[in-house]
Amino acid sequence: MPLPSLSVVIPAFNEEDNIEATLTNVFAQIDEIAEIVVVNNDSTDNTEAIVQGIQAREPKLRLVNEARAGVTFARNAGLNAATSEIVARLDADTLAQPGWARAIREYFATAPDSVGAATGPLLPFDSPFRKTFAKSNERLIARTRAASTDGLGVVGLAMAPGGNMAIRRSAWASVRAAISDRTDIHDDLDLSLCVRKCDYSIAFILGMQAETSARRFRTNPVAYWRYTNLLTRTYRAHEMAHEARATRIEVWNNRVVHLVTWLPTRAYNPESQRFSLGRMLSPEQDRITGRAYASSVN
Rank of each mutant, 00 (worst) to 15 (best):
A12M: 08
L157K: 09
R196P: 01
S282Y: 01
L61F: 05
D199K: 06
Q52F: 06
P4L: 03
R89W: 02
S201H: 02
E243I: 02
L259A: 13
P124M: 06
A88Y: 02
S43C: 14
S5A: 14
L259P: 00
G162N: 07
R176A: 12
P124R: 05
S295M: 09
H242G: 08
F275E: 12
H238T: 14
A142N: 11
M208T: 05
Y224Q: 03
F129S: 04
T119W: 09
A146H: 10
M159I: 08
D93I: 00
R62V: 06
L281N: 09
R105E: 02
D93S: 04
V115H: 01
S213V: 09
M240D: 15
Q285L: 07
T228H: 05
R255I: 06
Y224S: 04
S170I: 12
S192H: 03
S114L: 12
E85Q: 09
E48M: 05
D42K: 04
A171G: 00
E239C: 10
D126H: 10
D184F: 05
A292S: 06
F217L: 15
I30T: 10
A178S: 15
A223S: 14
I19L: 13
A34M: 05
L157C: 13
A160P: 01
S180I: 11
A237R: 07
K131W: 11
R62G: 01
E243P: 00
G151C: 13
A246C: 10
Y293R: 10
P270F: 06
M165W: 00
R169E: 13
A82W: 02
Y235I: 08
G162L: 04
A166F: 04
L6R: 01
L263W: 10
L231A: 03
V9F: 00
T72E: 04
A96R: 02
G156F: 06
G163K: 03
F129W: 07
L61V: 00
L157G: 05
F133S: 10
A81F: 08
I86N: 00
S84Y: 01
T47E: 01
I205S: 03
L157V: 05
R75F: 01
A160M: 07
D42H: 11
F133Q: 14
A109K: 08
R182T: 05
A69R: 11
R182N: 14
G70T: 06
V195I: 15
G151S: 14
R233L: 13
T149C: 09
A178Q: 14
P283A: 02
F129I: 07
L193T: 06
T144V: 15
I10F: 01
T234L: 10
N254E: 13
Q273P: 05
T183W: 00
R169Y: 06
T22R: 00
I86A: 01
A103T: 06
A69F: 09
I30H: 03
S276G: 14
G70N: 03
T72N: 05
A74N: 01
L230Y: 04
I50P: 02
M165F: 03
A96E: 02
A103I: 08
M240L: 15
A96D: 04
